[in-house]
């Protein structure tokens, strides 16, 4: 009984960690530019595909991840520069469609480069399951959770300790004021896209051994990441992380105890329920609208 629960919790935390990273990516970009970047899932895909295909062709794993990460950052900056920045004053819906267009475009390019089939990436440290109190866990899960943890802490430090981080935060609080005190807002937006892309790509690389990589892997992961970000309150970093973990665990429990077919619905039922009572998510701040 307990072993079963533990098993579900472990699966949930593993996938939740990826949702958390994706959610954090959404939040960072939203903070800097008020754009919901539906291409976030594609960053994950780029990371997963690049590391899987590069290692398969003999590149050492860390280097492969690094290259994938760099590639995703480049893509992120390009999306920001050529699509989002130009449509600066467009409406919310228009911006959403631009990022959706970007995600379709990126999937198309990825399909051309890497093909349509599934890629396999070997687990980083073997596949011998670890037994914990009757539940078994893949070593890769530890990698996923550990990497996500390290990244989340690093992001926290980045925003609170470094000048660039503080500049991004300042921009999110008040764009105009930030501009007035000499922050290059455009570069902040670019930096936020690069940062989100890096987070996504690393997430994609560590999760690839569990889920396989394929060009459509980012779609559902991206949507769940969005759910995580909204659940935690858009633009609230720690909230997005908490949201990701909640969604992941709830999904695994739902699959185990309710119905595996409704696994994907769990996240959306939660988000609807939360939004009914907390229109700004769990940790979001209440906003007033300027006329």
């Amino acid at each position: 009984m307990f072993a079963e629960l533990l098993q579900y919790m472990l699966s949930g935390l593993t996938i939740g960690a990826i949702y958390a990273l994706a959610g954090l990516g959404f939040s960072i970009i939203y903070n800097a530019s008020h754009v919901i970047n539906f291409a976030q899932g594609e960053f994950i895909m780029v990371g997963g595909m690049a590391s899987a295909t590069l290692t398969a062709s003999g590149v050492p794993l860390p280097l492969a991840i690094l290259i994938g990460c760099g590639g995703a950052m480049l893509v992120g900056v390009l999306v920001a520069k050529f699509a989002v920045e130009r449509a600066r004053n467009a409406s919310t819906v228009t911006l959403i469609i631009i990022t959706i267009g970007a995600s379709i475009f990126l999937r198309g390019v990825a399909e051309l480069i890497w093909g349509k089939d599934f890629k396999r990436l070997d687990a980083f440290s073997g596949e011998t399951p670890i037994q914990i109190l009757g539940a078994s866990m893949q070593p890769q899960s530890l990698w996923v959770v550990g990497t996500a943890g390290v990244l989340i802490v690093a992001i926290g430090l980045f925003f609170n300790k470094t000048l660039t981080g503080k500049a991004i935060l300042a921009t999110s609080h008040n764009r105009l004021a930030a501009q007035l005190v000499g922050i290059d807002v455009k570069r902040v937006v670019l930096a936020s896209f690069a940062l989100s892309a890096a987070l996504g790509a690393i997430g994609g690389a560590v999760v690839a051994p569990i889920t396989f990589s394929y060009t459509e892997m980012g779609i559902m992961l991206g949507l769940k990441g969005f759910t995580a970000a909204v659940l935690g309150g858009l633009g609230h970093g720690p909230g997005a992380v908490a949201g990701g973990l909640i969604v992941g665990v709830a999904e695994a429990l739902g699959a185990g105890y309710i119905s595996s077919a409704y696994k994907d619905a769990v996240a959306f039922v939660i988000i609807l329920a939360v939004l009914l009572f907390m229109p700004n998510g769990l940790f979001g701040k209440r906003g007033t609208e300027r006329v």
Partner: peptide, 17 residues
């Protein structure tokens, strides 16, 4: 008699049962 979805990336729940 369990089922899984064509696009599922994790079926540990069904297999645990």
């Amino acid at each position: 008699d369990e089922t899984y979805g064509a696009k599922d990336t994790d079926v540990t729940a069904q297999l645990t049962k």
